[in-house]
Design a protein around this nucleic acid. Sequence first.
RNA 1: UGGGGGAUCGUCUAGUGGUAGGACGACGGGCUCUGGACCCGUUAGCGGGGGUUCGAAUCCUCCUCCCCCAGCCA
Length: 587
Amino acid sequence: MSDEAGASTRERRVNPNFITEIIDEDLKQDRYAKITTRSPPEPNGYLHIGHAKSICLNFGLALDYSGECNLRFDDTNPETESIEYVEAAKRDVQWLGFQWARERYASDYFGRLYECAEQLIQHGKAYVDSLSDAEMSAHRGTITEPGKPSPYRDRSVEENLDLFRRMRAGEFPDGAHVLRARIDLASRNMKLRDPVLYRIVHAPHYHTGDAWCIYPLYDFAHPLSDAIEGISHSICTLEFENNRAIYDWLLEHLRGTCGLPPSPRPYQYEFARLNLDYTVLSKRKLIKLVEGSHVRGWDDPRMPTLSGLRRRGVTPEAIRQFCFRIGVAKSNSRVDVSSFEATVRDDLNVRAPRVLAVLRPLRIVLTNQPEGTIEHLEAPYWPHDVPREGSRTLPFSRELYIEHDDFMEQPPKGFHRLSPGGRVRLRHAYVIRCDEVVKDATGDVVELRCSYDPTTLRAQPSDGRVKGTLHWVSAAHAMPAEVRLYNHLFTAPDPEATGGDFAAHLRPDSLVVARGYVEPSVLADPADTRYQFERLGYFWQDPEDSRPDHLVFNRIITLRDSWAKAAEKAASTSPNKTDRSASDGTA
RNA sequence: UGGGGGAUCGUCUAGUGGUAGGACGACGGGCUCUGGACCCGUUAGCGGGGGUUCGAAUCCUCCUCCCCCAGCCA
């Protein structure tokens, strides 16, 4: 296998895409000695699965090309940012499995950035404007009309310098003046109509304290920080495409000055951010979910945040694999949630031992099992197709619980489970027959009286095969557990599309709490073990709330359920067949 | 209306003048002490019209549709 200067063709972290093509070419042309990227974004919210796409890209590229990725926070807005978000982001990046070369903050460079600003003023490339917010907006023009120059646009270098220094010294209130680049008020690119570089904000910064009362804007800080750090490929999302013109303008005017290397200079590239079905991925909306108490916090397992997914039980490997699968391109896209779920299942299938748990218990009594007898049945943790070893024993006794849904008095065609007079296999145990249905005063089924066939352990009954296999637990031995069943947070695939309040699409039953039972063997396992509860899905103990004397399990993801799907389809198609033909006729 | 981007199976994504491929989904079948997993098969796409070429998703041209831009947010 030839391997040239580019990434190894084996075990890439990042699927080849338009950015890797650029890197391949840059390396081939010797434009950079090594590639250097940076991540993540502004510390004004928790990182989510969309950020994971960017993190996997930036860190993955560094790994694939033997380069480096810096952890850099563009912390230029002290009013919305906080150390809490910084710490959460660091935790999340590490959890995802990445190591940064350097930890950096735009605020590390405030001194240098200020120097750059003065440099621009000296060269007549920036000026202090004293228009109000509204006036400046009015002067900016529209997409079809050019902007008008501010009356302050032609202040002398001396006056600009004086004003700017006094801005820094704290002589003016918020909003009194700003520093703007002098570029082109008639530019077809609105971003180039003399963008604001610095504003006055009398607010302490979590990192620099009270040292500054003027703060650079992202457009100013971002390219210069990249240059200072020697970033080669500065990757961001599509909405910054127009901002690239400022990025280039600043670097072309400042490279080689104020300690910025003359070359090589960084370049910005933009890719499409991730959109995922049945959730929202914007910090503003995620904050609304938290502040509106629609969820229990940033780490609520229904949240698409990395802390939420972590608490839910999704592994970092699954998230990385998902980011690898979806790829990187420039067209706006929306990924099927089924794609994410399939990745999570693939990951868990080979790492989760199988155990038995019952979510909605229905008591069954084995009438031919003497009271007080307990059998210990050997049960492997892994199915035949997962090549791993290990087993535990299951206590088997006269009184058991099975899943309420696994019994029907009048079963539909194709129902392989239990019904009156019917037989079924108990997983890792015996075949039983339902002899009698016990109901309460309201007619609800409360107990089944069954008999078991002692000849059927690891064997089919002599008089024919039994099709269904049910999960079960021993009533006297099972551990009670609170089981939290999560569903999509929203009922609409794109909650933001319909306009109006996205919260109107919140799914009322996105969390359902069940009181069930888990086989006792789980108490001997590490608390962070991820299980498959057979026939139900993948689960693990909630890392915050679960205790040995009060087990709390989170459902990470259901199993695929082709029976439920078929049943749902049968229910929705057959009854309105007549309605449908009738309406066809009248239409 | 100006500028900047983008359009390939239902969804995401390869393809860079030479048989449109993969993943997810859907559908059908096999296997199974999980209606899981796995295996096999099927379905299904180049936004539209012209042109260049032996040959076009790819090059040219006209058009259509979608996204972004008028924060002292990022």
